[in-house]
Design a protein around this nucleic acid. Sequence first.
DNA 1: ATGGCTAGGCTCCCTAGA
Length: 259
Amino acid sequence: MKIATFNINGIKARIEALPRWLAAATPDVVCLQEIKSVDESFPREMFEDMGYRVETHGQKGFNGVAILSRLPLEEVVRGLPGDPADEQARWIEATVMGAVPLRICGLYLPNGNPAPGPKYDYKLAWMARMEARVRALLALEEPFLCLGDYNVIPQREDAAKPDAWLEDALFLPQTRAAYRRILNLGMTEAFRARVQGPGHYSFWDYQANAWERNNGIRIDHVLLSPQAADLLRDVQIDREVRAGDKPSDHVPVWVEIAA
DNA sequence: ATGGCTAGGCTCCCTAGA
């Protein structure tokens, strides 16, 4: 089963590029971030016509996440548990009903800039809530994945110019430590389980010819529970998508799972 | 890089992104 994450930076703006990638890559499950749409405005029929079930958790203007799946989805949860007052649409969970039921968590972790400040406080609080949710899911001892736009640069090798990010919310020591706390619960980061070394990115800024200069960062990640890590067969970053017509500033990242 | 571009709001400039 091929499972992907893709921050599309607006469903309306990606109304051609997203179906183009789906047709070429044929993923079974896709977690989308930054749909920038309310549920009622999401063009679900377009994806249903391509064979996908569609579950959205949108909001007006910003954020918004969704799951597309060729297999039935059950037990959909919208919103990251732990703060009923949080109105930002950044988390959606569902169980993909294949031969092995697979819990999928699609996430759009807060950017957090500028740091320090209230936006950074929100990022760290959100990461603490995610840690609690992952801890609860791990207790079930079942295969599950948390994939999405983490807005975390894990290590220096994950940025073309790491020194430019030292004061940024994506790369501050506190951010990286909070991310490691989630990994240290027992989660496996799929890409680094398979690929070593620098030069692998998932985001290139629209500004300053960042793509042409390969000035990128790797911030879109797939985390696997121990039972899901047992099933990992492949992981890829579809970097060539960034060179297509009217691209998102992120590219898809996907895993192949033996399930 | 004190923001060079992109997206969405309900706009003719603002916020937000990373």
